[in-house]
């Protein structure tokens, strides 16, 4: 059922891609979207192979993949984060309108303010993510002499606890709480948003908790299934399109 945990977490996709960079055209082939044969478009989104990253560079991709696989490990409840499409979801979110600061008021002057005044950084979400990954990796290099993706599970846990409690501070002045809350938000959104956005692959997030998805005509069910589980039938937007 579930995917095997990769044993050597430190040496994976990034090393392959990095070595491929030397090959130029080979690298392009490795990162470009796989050519989709005619007729395959009818496949529900999220079932296809990972189509490559639009925003994340190799180091960032390695960070995000390590992060989502640590936060969402494979177990009897779901595949691991990368296999649920979380890295793809995050990449697309950062590459898209939201990541570019769509619907974000971006006029200065810029001041830190107090927490109750909310987001006040002169950064789009994509810029924040990029700066936060660099700052976290700088912390990891200083503390462990390795980037985040090369840490073992105990060290990764230490770093995430440090970020989430703001016990880690970034030397470059980036506010750690703002970075962490953005990271956390994107992981959750990747797990539970509709699969059309690249995460929640095979509706694994919905299946984990029992959310049936977009078919939701429960006028009869609210009586019929009073204190009973609804029989599993998970439907996403692409299934109805």
């Amino acid at each position: 059922m579930q995917n095997e945990e990769k044993k050597d977490e430190g040496f994976g996709r990034r090393d392959f891609l990095k070595s491929a960079v030397a090959g130029g055209a080979v690298a392009a082939a490795a990162t470009a979207a796989v050519t989709v044969p005619q007729g395959a478009q009818a496949q529900p989104a999220g079932n296809g192979p990972a189509p490559g990253y639009a925003f994340l560079n190799l180091d960032e991709a390695a960070f995000v993949e390590a992060l989502v696989d640590h936060m969402v490990p494979a177990d009897q409840l779901s595949p691991k984060g990368t296999d649920m499409g979380l890295a793809i979801f995050i990449d697309r979110a950062l590459a898209g309108g939201w990541g570019k600061g769509d619907r974000l008021y971006m006029q200065g002057p810029w001041k830190p303010g107090v927490p109750s005044q909310g987001y006040q950084l002169p950064l789009t979400p994509a810029e924040l993510y990029r700066a936060g990954i660099a700052a976290t990796n700088a912390h990891c290099m200083k503390t462990y002499s390795k980037s985040f993706d090369r840490l073992d599970a105990t060290q990764r846990q230490e770093v995430l606890l440090g970020l989430s409690s703001a016990k880690i501070t970034f030397a470059d002045g980036l506010p750690v709480r703002v970075f962490w809350s953005t990271v956390y938000q994107t992981v959750i959104e990747g797990m539970f948003s509709d699969p059309i956005y690249g995460g929640n692959r095979d509706k694994a997030g919905w299946k984990m908790i029992g959310f049936p998805g977009v078919i939701a005509n429960h006028a009869q069910n609210i009586i019929k299934y009073r204190d009973k589980k609804l029989p599993p039938n998970f439907v996403g937007i692409a299934d109805m399109s």
Partner: peptide
């Protein structure tokens, strides 16, 4: 219309 309206990311997270 269904299914596009039942998109939590679009209408709740992104408002």
């Amino acid at each position: 219309s269904v299914p596009m309206i039942r998109d939590e990311l679009r209408f709740t997270s992104r408002n």
